[in-house]
């Protein structure tokens, strides 16, 4: 009998064929060495990296970026710290130079405290960046109409949040995520932000999402490397569960075998 190891599963995102459906951030780790171990054990093949704050001034950022490049996996530069389409576009262009990739995680922030994305500026920036040949990974809320607008301007990937960045609250509104999945069966959908524990990642994958992107849940764990391994298994479990097809929920707890001594036709009377 074959074991349905999720590692045999491949998927395509942004023109690349990958095994791992776990995308990782590169902030908040105790050290770059610890991050490297966590990423290795997670099996992740995409790591996001921020530029905006690191790139200003003289000779900024290079050492840390070199460390990220040395991991030998796909680098997804992000525009974190941008508050307008214009800032995000400039950051994306800089990222293309620095990392030699047309991938960009588009992140335009609309609220300074909770880092909620600004959907209006995100759509505006996505339209410009797609015309400039970028593969845009837009970070957005779980609003279906915003997802539609992003698809309209040509996004092939949409990354709705589970909940607010760094909140660890998990999937705040699974119904909204399901609605986006139903509306866009052919786009690559990744739950980005809000994941706090492995079960949240499993849940996102069970909804039929193509991947999950997270940072704090691993980086802020007391043992980030062990947590990275936990997320590897969780994402694989969720994906396998989705592919296997979950049973439908029922309105009552139904024993699958009759209780001894009770004729089965009497059980629910």
């Amino acid at each position: 009998m074959t074991k349905y190891l999720a590692s045999n599963d491949t998927w395509e995102i942004g023109g690349k064929r990958l095994n791992s459906r776990l995308l990782m951030g590169s902030a908040l780790y105790p050290s770059p060495a610890n991050m490297e171990d966590a990423i290795k054990i997670s099996g992740s093949q995409i790591v996001t990296v921020s530029l905006r704050r690191q790139a200003a001034g003289e000779g900024g950022g290079n050492q840390f970026w070199d460390i990220i490049k040395s991991f030998g996996i796909e680098v997804l530069p992000n525009t974190a710290g941008s508050h307008s389409a214009k800032e995000a576009i400039t950051t994306a262009q800089m990222a293309r130079e620095v990392f030699g990739t047309n991938w960009v995680k588009l992140e335009v922030i609309g609220d300074q405290y909770n880092l909620q994305p600004d959907p209006f500026e995100t759509v505006k920036a996505a339209e410009v960046l797609i015309k400039e040949g970028f593969e845009v990974f837009p970070y957005t809320t779980d609003d279906l109409v915003v997802a539609k607008r992003l698809a309209d301007v040509g996004c092939k990937i949409i990354m709705p949040w589970g909940s607010m960045i760094g909140s660890g609250k998990g999937l705040m509104n699974p119904d909204n995520l399901i609605a986006i999945r139903k509306q866009f069966p052919d786009l690559q959908l990744v739950v980005d932000a809000g994941i706090g524990k492995p079960s949240h990642a499993t849940q996102a994958m069970e909804l039929g999402y193509d991947g999950v992107l997270l940072n704090s849940a691993i980086a802020l764990a007391q043992d980030p490397v062990k947590m990275a391994d936990a997320f590897r298994v969780a994402v694989e479990a969720g994906r396998l569960g989705y592919e296997a097809g979950t049973m439908k929920e029922r309105e009552f707890a139904s024993p699958s075998t009759p209780t001894i001594g009770t004729p089965f036709w009497h059980q629910f009377n």
Partner: peptide
């Protein structure tokens, strides 16, 4: 704490 070797003056942010 910013991952950069830039020693230029403090940023507004």
């Amino acid at each position: 704490e910013i991952e950069s070797e830039d020693k230029s003056p403090m940023s507004v942010r």
